[in-house]
Amino acid sequence: MAEPVSRHPATLRGRLRFARTLRRLAVRLAGAVFVLWAVATITFFAVRLIPGDPALAVLGGPGSQASPEALAAVSAAYGFDQSVFVQYLAQLGRLATGDLGRSYALNMEVGPLVLSQLGGTVLLAVLALILAWVLALALATWSTRGGTVAARVGSGLEIIAAALPHFWLATSLIVVFSIWIGVLPPISTGGVAGLVLPVLTLGIPLAGFLGQVMRESLLLALESPFVLSARARGESERGVRWIHAFRHASLPAISLSGWAFGSLISGAVVVETIFARPGLGRTLLNAVTLRDVPVVIGVVMVVAVAYIVMTLATDALSRVVDPRLRLS
């Protein structure tokens, strides 16, 4: 709006703000590194709890009938004969350089394997999040338009949607759209058509959840004094909703979106399995079934990174939408 009085204070203010932002980012990064380290530590020690000889697991599991010499060789090669602490440090060192080890079951490096699968899952999660937001917003707006019927129906839809299990929803959607109507493929063959059902499966329950949150805060905002002030200035209903209420209503939903992304990745395990889509979820499930420990660790680490990135992103978005957060 108005220009500052003189330029000098502005640059000084600008520099101070920059320094503060930098410090804040540094703190966040430190926190992220801490979380990653903690995740790595937990997974390391969790893995050590797995019963049985790890060398045996490398060679194919209990039924592989490996010879004692082979076991000894593997133990030496992988460092299983060293003390816990040394193994731990070695693991940390490997993780720091990005070496996630080698899969027991598939004959490849975990790093490239996981990274190749990452894209599919992230794509699903992002699309599902967008869909959930759109649906939740539409439902919240429609159900607060007025009248108890719309409110009850909207609330009911949200509750039911949020309670739908992913596997049931997926199966039902397949039955309806692939088998009865025959419009969409039941199994992904790559391409946009194969994305529709998986994204719907992930997005609808989340839409129910976000919708509840949005509707409650929208109602609260619409009854607040500043909305009354806006109306007293002659603001239309649409202006009140979009200029004022929506911003307030979206705040809790934005801060939930970080958690939501995590739960979408978790849901991707089921969805990728049902729709036979390539992705981290299916990879993880296979690895768990086969007790392929390096892959499990790799997926867990990558998911942790993705979750942290998403949390940072939602924090930044919150600060944009809510200027109060920008004040110390």
């Binding site: 500043f226 004022h244 911003r247 200027p323």
Partner: peptide, 9 residues
Amino acid sequence: LVSLDPLRP
């Protein structure tokens, strides 16, 4: 404080 939109300048 509540009669003006707290998110807008």
